[in-house]
Design a protein around this nucleic acid. Sequence first.
DNA 1: TTAGGTTTTGAATGCGCATTCATAAAATGC
DNA 2: GCATTTTATGAATGCGCATTCAAAACCTAA
Lengths: 343, 343
Amino acid sequence: MAKKSIRAADVAKRAGVSQPTVSRVFGVGTKVSKKLELKVKTAAAELGYRPNTLARTLATGCSKTIGLIVSFLENPFYPEALEKLSLVLNESGYHILIFMAANQAEEIDTIVEDLLDNQVDGIIFASVGISNTLTDRLVKENIPLVLFNRGQDDPRLSSVTSANFEGGRTVAQFLLAGGHQRIAHISGWQGSSTGRDRQAGFIKGLKDAGQELIGCIDSRFRRSLAAEATRRLFLGEIIPDAIFVGNDHMAFAVMETIRTEFGLRIPEDVSVVGYDDVSMSEWPSFNLTTIRQPANRMVEETVKMLLSMIDGDFLTVQKLEIDASLQVRGSARIPEEWPNEEF
Amino acid sequence: MAKKSIRAADVAKRAGVSQPTVSRVFGVGTKVSKKLELKVKTAAAELGYRPNTLARTLATGCSKTIGLIVSFLENPFYPEALEKLSLVLNESGYHILIFMAANQAEEIDTIVEDLLDNQVDGIIFASVGISNTLTDRLVKENIPLVLFNRGQDDPRLSSVTSANFEGGRTVAQFLLAGGHQRIAHISGWQGSSTGRDRQAGFIKGLKDAGQELIGCIDSRFRRSLAAEATRRLFLGEIIPDAIFVGNDHMAFAVMETIRTEFGLRIPEDVSVVGYDDVSMSEWPSFNLTTIRQPANRMVEETVKMLLSMIDGDFLTVQKLEIDASLQVRGSARIPEEWPNEEF
DNA sequence: TTAGGTTTTGAATGCGCATTCATAAAATGC
DNA sequence: GCATTTTATGAATGCGCATTCAAAACCTAA
């Protein structure tokens, strides 16, 4: 059907050399005399030759593609990260085989099988967890793997997250400094390290000052659940004067619910703080005070880590936590004495 | 380094058959006696054998992966579409090699080369254009290709869009029926068919009623430009009482600028209508009246079209326009007599 | 029972490239 | 100028699977 593609052998014949020579010209780290190289290159150009990546992969065992499993794409943090990830990986000559996943273990397993069948050189899990048995397999098969924005206890797993615990604590200090007395938390999924750590840090921060949460609801990073949680909080006995929400995506829903369903003002009546600092946070409609999770750096570190694992440096296995600082905007009362470092 | 992988030949030896027999068991449309099939399958299971997709691709010339080039990921329409695309393609047994692109011809060319080197079976361009020379190449090389949410005149190109012209016209009729007198348009990129068609339809709709735009600014689907355009419009001599914005993504910026910078109310002072109906449109903060572009159907049709082209049915080449209806919400004055079909 | 026909199966080959190994060419030393 | 080391090249082989083709096994009918 399609016109037969030109192979290295065709170029070789035209250039009057052997096929391996052509292969060497287009390969990396292989040497050919200037003279032949020129002949080969012109012949290749005349024929419009391009090496077949697949054949190369089959021969070398290295595909220059990495598998990416991502979920929660409705949270703008992930499209943003995805875009950067693509950029950085492409710069390093890697391709991305992408899969969307709900967060079910069996589904992940299937996807990973699929990735392995396709000979990916490494895998990035963006905001998805991995089962123990799957970890066993991947480690045994020596497949480099990094968890992005999600940590797991297993010491064999590398991950890049922000300093979620610290971030949560910072928020607590900020809200306390603002004199809030009735603080609640609408948390991210407690089945995820990010959700747990942010919450734990937050609670710790309150506790250190002798305060306790007046309410804490797991809304699993979902807008609808966050809105529902907000309703429960504001229909309760004690209504909060501050809410820390597990990520920005949910925080927007919380803010809207507070405003439209309860007619309260932000931050006059209620302070809201989020986590992520997605670009939407600075939209005037939200102007959300939030913990800035630097997607750029997280992506860079993720790729760096993965690539060095691919290069065989398994000492790279580590759990990296990127600093996460508070981005003060207008959705939460600003304490008088708060150090105004940001801007 | 990694444990040597088990090949079909290993399974064959263990099952006491030949390698081709194993190949036939795992291939499609190939027959093997029940007896041998069982032996092979148990042997394969015992060894944990999985066929190497790459080798298969090399042998068959069909990779079961499609290349996806996408830009404007900051517009939530595309993450939404991407997610569905992934779902539908995976269901059909296809994988996605994804590339982000700014919209520059040369960059696209490079990406496409890359895709071809990787032997993709087909390509989807999501919201990116394609040059004539590239079209020539792809057509000559017989690479199936579908443009998603972007049309081009070239008769050799397939595309799936919504009925942008009609959509634009509908908005015009809606705003006219609402009695608006000073209507402006902040358009999508006029270098894209979507941007042009929506604008053309809108203008036509106005013209048919004897009205004209009081202002029309190309904001190239970008938030910042849309905000800037809004400022220009509202600082002008005649202040609009209605604005049709080329997509929701920009419309949000327009609404915010109108509210926060000019202190005007929507829809009392100004009506705003968008295009796409991304999920954010129904958030209370925006409650945006907009043209609903059914991502689900568009994705399904795109995949259907692409797959039948891959199956060799090039009669499938066509330009498909999906119906786009108005989703009436609260961001624009609702005419008394407007047929309330939606919900 | 045997000729003719229908399936099944295996040996051989190719997909396009990289790599080992042996040989030829060039460069170096004295 | 010759022996020795270094470098450049080509023939052969393998990556893992699918497919052609011919041989073998199985059926069917008379």
